[in-house]
């Protein structure tokens, strides 16, 4: 299945603005993040505390609905889903 990944702020500099990814049917948000991390070291370092553990402040949305990176990484993705990933910007 094909899903769309949209990155914002510093994640956009690493992943690009948006890309389509081919995933196996039944893949989860966690699987998607693993694919991104395994193909992009900068993303892995920026988004993950340690392998498999996303940094707690990373914001994730599926079809514009925010999901909790601690609880919902097992959520199944579907054909055409749009996944947004962004770090909060904090400076002033």
């Amino acid at each position: 299945m094909l899903v769309k990944v949209m990155a914002f702020a510093s994640f956009r500099e690493i992943l690009g603005r948006e890309r389509e990814l081919e995933l196996k049917a039944g893949s989860t948000v966690g699987d998607l993040l693993d694919v991104l991390a395994s193909t992009n070291r900068r993303f892995k370092e920026a988004a993950f505390e340690e392998p498999g553990q996303l940094r707690e402040w990373v914001l994730l949305m599926i079809n514009k609905k925010r999901i909790d990176p601690f609880q919902d990484l097992g959520a199944e993705l579907h054909e055409g889903d749009e996944i947004a990933i962004l770090p909060p910007v904090a400076g002033g």
Binding site: F8, A9, P88
Partner: peptide, 10 residues
């Protein structure tokens, strides 16, 4: 609310 970092803001 507003915040910035480099070229980016929200």
């Amino acid at each position: 609310h507003g915040a910035i970092c480099g070229y980016q803001g929200q």
